[in-house]
Write a protein that binds this DNA or RNA. Structure first.
Lengths: 147, 147
DNA sequence: AACATTTTAATCGTGTACGATATAATCATT
DNA sequence: AATGATTATATCGTACACGATTAAAATGTT
């Protein structure tokens, strides 16, 4: 038996599990808004800066268009965003928030503090969180540049 | 604009992205073995202890049967595991490694060091990794007990 | 201008995730 | 022993992820 193959020695498994459990924890918070976690991420991007190309959202979220396109189509069907062909470059698709999409921001503004609250019930202090963010950024940047 | 809704302030987005990028990084390592990352996790569990119930694997990986069952069915079709009805309790399904499944362990033994190597190209040192593991465990245990 | 090349999205197919539901087998009570 | 409650998996439907391919449009070259 190889010790390096023990599940408990796998950092990656923990990342995978933590990510899944957090997405699950978001569900009850996002359900009242009628959106999923990846859709929430798209809205975060658009709330920061509206009228973006699919490629802009793609770069920001590190997701390919084959993931984002159907996601945006569902959001369009829900009336959260509108999509229009680019005028400068006809291949591009411009994504814009609808009034409904903009209004959702109000309902979402307390979600981050709810999540922080849920996590700080544990002994996860401010300082641990900062270290975590910095370590994750290191990992993300390392793996991003591998393309 | 609410600062708490800025994407860059979201710990959760980083976890989500790091997890996805790591799974992507595993792909070229797992492809020669003909398995996916979740299938690799199931094998890690079975390599540690063979002949487990679906519920055992479920608890170990924090995944529900509705995720694991089809996963195991694909692995069975690939000849990596076999599934049989429990003798003591007919509701249970016993999952066992086939010879092919056992043999894969040999081919997999260098995968962890490959991943560690890829990550240590960044400035992620041994110490950061230990802190990361401990923080993730805190998060996981907090969210697990919320059920 | 005509055409090969590149770029940008969308489409397609497979494999997870996961809530909700169904099925089947055991257990607890009567 | 019969039946209602519980438990262990499996099934179903929806929504991602992502590699591979396609389609359309802009760009570069001759």
């Amino acid at each position: 038996m190889y010790p390096q193959l023990k599940l408990d020695n796998q950092v990656c498994f923990r990342l995978y599990t933590a990510s899944r459990l957090i997405t699950q924890a978001y569900r009850p918070l996002l359900e009242p808004l009628g959106i999923t976690y990846p859709q929430y991420l798209v809205l975060l991007v658009l709330w920061e800066k509206d009228n973006l190309l699919v490629s802009d959202i793609s770069h920001r979220l590190e997701l390919e268009s084959n993931t984002i396109t159907p996601l945006l189509q569902r959001m369009e069907k829900e009336g959260l965003v509108s999509r229009s062909k680019g005028v400068v470059d006809g291949r591009q698709t411009l994504v814009s928030l609808t009034k409904k999409g903009i209004r959702l921001q109000e309902q979402a503004k307390d979600i981050p503090s709810c999540m922080t609250g849920a996590l700080s019930h544990s002994s996860l202090c401010e300082n641990d969180a900062r270290t975590l963010v910095s370590t994750l950024d290191t990992i993300i940047n390392t793996l991003k540049s591998n393309d």
